[in-house]
Design a protein around this nucleic acid. Structure first.
Length: 404
DNA sequence: CTATGTTTAGAGGCTC
DNA sequence: GAGCCTCTAAACATAG
């Protein structure tokens, strides 16, 4: 029997809505200011606008990075298009801004630390209150094209949170696992025109309500693609899944209840099936990556057989594990498709045109209930995270009545 | 060889 | 307490 070492540094507590509500008055900067007099100017960025936070975060991240990495330029690019991103998913950017604010505080506290002997522990050692799925989602959403490579995800996380600049092998393995294991992440293969290692990763368009409880540490329910689940069952049992929920529920992943399966299948069925003639596909915008559009001729045979989609509609096809599937969204119009890279502002329109109303509110981050955001004022950080409670004087700054 | 991706297994915490 | 979610570890396969 193997003992998990995680208890010694991480406990991954989930924060319930009630806890979130009660935490509304808790401002991390206030908590730490009581321990670090005079440091408010440096760390009270929670009262700042998200954009300010985002900007300062990135600069902090950049300052602490060694040299120029591809991701650095990506972050700069992200910053450059922040206005567009904001228009695509405001709530998502609130979360990103909050995450960046947290990173900002980490760095600020790091600076304060040198002037304050009483401060014993750096934010650098604190594990950010986000699940890996949340972090991956943030990385994807922060990308102008909503598609990132694995290394981009790594860099995004390390840029944002110094905590993840250590023990990289451990958490990066978890990142890879999360990408492969969770249906909400879709793998988009590279085109011959864009050689390189690894694929691109994007979000499944139907995975929008993963974090509807407003908690980014733990999803209320896990998104599962019925089609992919059926594939798993088929592979596992060596037979065709013809009984849908029953088979899925009995032999499927232990992470999925029958109820959830039924709900999601219903959602899938209710999702309007766009009827877009291939020839009506608009030419890519001027700033699109033209070279990628040749992907339709590069669909692996095995994958093409698995998904008999029209050749004209073949986007970045492939069903390796969790490629975008037919019926879920047409490839040639999928806002995330690399064959259809468009401005964030166009994403919403495209989605609405293909029968996905409210795309702008689909992102996991943006699915945070408005009431929750109003209650929390962006402060729904799961401050019950033990690693945070060990900050400062190593006394838990959060009253037990609130933290638990 | 290294990075990437998949899969399995188990532990701990949370929700119902 | 059962079921679910997340995290971690590890083995293995594959691509560049």
């Amino acid at each position: 029997m193997m003992l998990s070492p995680k208890a010694s540094y991480q406990a991954a507590p989930a924060t319930t809505m009630s806890t979130m509500g009660s935490m509304a008055a808790i401002n991390p900067s206030v908590q730490y200011s009581s321990q670090m007099p005079g440091s408010m100017n440096s760390i009270n960025s929670y009262s700042m606008s998200p954009m300010n936070n985002m900007g300062s975060m990135n600069m902090n991240g950049m300052n602490s990075m060694n040299g120029m990495s591809p991701m650095n330029s990506m972050n700069m690019n992200t910053m450059g298009t922040m206005n567009q991103v904001m228009s695509t998913s405001p709530a998502m950017n609130m979360e990103l801004a909050r995450a960046s604010s947290l990173a900002n505080q980490m760095n600020a506290v790091n600076r304060v630390r040198t002037d304050n002997k009483t401060y014993r522990r750096s934010y650098t050692h604190a594990k950010p209150p986000y699940s890996y799925i949340s972090l991956i989602t943030m990385a994807i959403q922060s990308s102008p094209n909503k598609m990132v490579t694995l290394s981009d995800i790594y860099q995004f996380i390390m840029d944002l949170f110094p905590f993840y600049r250590q023990n990289q092998q451990r958490w990066q393995n978890s990142i890879r696992h999360s990408l492969s294991f969770n249906d909400c992440f879709l793998k988009v293969p590279r085109t011959p025109d864009r050689p390189g290692k690894g694929s691109f990763w994007t979000l499944h368009p139907d995975s929008g309500n993963m974090f509807e409880n407003g908690c980014y540490l733990r999803r209320q329910k896990r998104f599962k693609c019925p089609k992919r689940e059926a594939q798993r069952v088929t592979q596992r049992d060596g037979r065709t899944d013809e009984h849908g929920e029953e088979t899925t529920g009995s032999t499927g992943s232990p992470h999925m209840t029958d109820t959830t399966t039924a709900q999601q299948q219903q959602t899938q069925q209710q999702m309007p099936q766009p009827k877009v003639e291939p020839h009506t596909m608009s030419p890519p915008p001027p700033n699109s990556i033209q070279s990628i559009t040749s992907m339709s001729n590069n669909v692996p045979t095995s994958l093409a057989m698995a998904r008999p989609i029209p050749q004209q509609a073949a986007y970045v096809s492939g069903m390796g594990a969790h490629m975008l599937g037919p019926g879920q969204h047409p490839s040639f119009n999928h806002p995330f498709s690399i064959t259809n890279i468009m401005s964030p502002a166009e994403h919403g329109k495209a989605y609405e045109a293909m029968g996905y109303p409210g795309y702008n509110t689909m992102s996991p981050i943006s699915s945070m209930p408005k009431s929750s955001m109003e209650q929390t004022g962006y402060t729904n950080l799961t401050t019950s995270e033990p690693s945070y409670s060990q900050l400062g004087t190593q006394q838990n700054p959060i009253p037990n009545s609130i933290a638990h």
